[in-house]
Design a protein around this nucleic acid. Sequence first.
RNA 1: UGCCUGAUAGUAUAACGGUAGUACGACAGACUCUGACUCUGUUUGUCUUGGUUCGAAUCCAGGUCAGGCAACCA
Length: 555
Amino acid sequence: MSEERSLNFIEQIVEEDIANGVNDGRVLTRFPPEPNGYLHIGHAKSIVVNFGIAQQYNGKTNLRFDDTNPVTEDTEYVESIKADIKWLGFTWDKELYASDYFEQLYAFAVKMIEKGLAYVEDATAEEIAAAKGTPTTPGTPTPARSRSVAENLDLFQRMRNGEFKDGEKTLRAKIDLASPNMHMRDPLMYRIKHAHHHRTGDKWCIYPMYDFAHGQSDSIEQITHSLCTLEFIPHRPLYEWFINELEIFPSHQYEFARFNMSYTVMSKRKLKQLVEEKIVAGWDDPRMPTLSGLRRRGYTPSSIRNLCERVGLQKREYMIDFSLLEFCIREELNKSANRVMAVLDPVKLVITNYPADKVEILTAENNPEDESAGSRQLYFSNTLYIEREDFMENPPKKFFRLGPGLVVRLKNAYVIQGESVEKDADGNITTIYATYLPGTKSGEENSNMTVKGTIHWVSAEHAASAEVRLYDRLFTSENPGSEEGDFKTFINPDSLQVIRNAMVEPALLQASPGDRFQFMRKGYFTVDADSTPEKVVFNRTVTLKDAWAKEKAKS
RNA sequence: UGCCUGAUAGUAUAACGGUAGUACGACAGACUCUGACUCUGUUUGUCUUGGUUCGAAUCCAGGUCAGGCAACCA
């Protein structure tokens, strides 16, 4: 067979661990989203990594919601996250919540206090920050740092009891105020929030911080390889310090570079802003990089998985070209999507030498890339709609379409020759007149005559009207998140164009939401959930590559 | 200024001391009843300076550049 794909650095670590009998060769990963927003394509990368590694090495993956901050989290997000993971094609072993461990985490905190490694702080956020020093100057202890174990135990119990207001007290680890790693300068373990939690309700008014919940949850679940993104590297010493001092199962953290893509933003905060300020229609707006948005746009789960795998896994930061995502979906849809004809910007074409009352039924193959896709029937008559841009009155040399005297093939039908046009008062073409060449119908004796161009069409009398939504990139800047100022100033004003009266093959009236088609010469489209029996709505997933557009752009 | 990461064509990735290869993009051409698909070809790269070695993208040292870290966010 072909040579093996080389192992990425995580696979190397896992294989080494298995070879050395670490955890008896057991592999258990976890995907730990915070339920405070919808999953995006960056999360897909993390899902593919975490679930993929486990699958590869006979392991399992837990889905664990990192729900330690009640004010931002909600069950709406829990449900969407679960749906998106399933859609991507992955199955988790256990569905878990960090909030399931609150009692255990509380006991861990008590243990830290008893060991003299945690204390209740009285200082405000500002005072704590000031006393932390700077990266180059050590911090200074607050008076609370020298409290007795007994007093800390009592105070922490009273924090839990609700005797203090938000922010009045915190629990801090007692580590090293002079550490060059700021995360080791007595980090917060617990804070007071009198807030309703989406799962524990009003049971708790103190909640653990990420650093005193994540690693401990990993350990409780006996996660073997805790895979996260680069920004958690400075947290690793703390992750290990807590596990070590708590003397609990030694999970290990490994970090990989997060997924970035050009012409979009990936931060949940920014995506949320787009939704809340109604710049997009919702989390599943087809322009959003969310999984629900990509789904509605027509992207397949396999195209997204494929993209994640192509990108690989490494520690250096990167920015993926939008064009790679487009390549992945085109590659798949080219093989699987049935071809149909849809005229997005219709202009009437009358064939003057074809009988006005005649209707022919022609046969068209559904997918030249897949014989098993079969064929369908098309109505042909003397009055058609063709694409306005497929006709030019004064065409340049390389224009292989219709014009006065120019010959072109109507896909699956006859060869025609352009004759004349009719215009309205403003000079816009209202009707194009042409003649057809008898015997040139697809399959007939003269059908092999060579013609430079082929255009798509629909029979005017038989066509159905449809709404088509053309999407383009949401931002005009390659990296809007890193630009100076408000990222919203780089919104692409033309990211959505709605066509209310496209003319399509009548059979498309029967299509269901989620169905995918190639509109010949135009792109790949999917049926939107907004469709009704009277009006089908199509979203453009991606255009076809367009050599003519490039040719035009040159001049 | 402290600590931590990292650096291979435009983008992304491979080569694990022995010919710098692949994909996407771009460009040129062939084919075409989709200016699609497919096929062929072209272009462009090891951050830098030293060192080790018969031999360095790879090992070592210095430098440069980029990113991260001083939330009661995760």
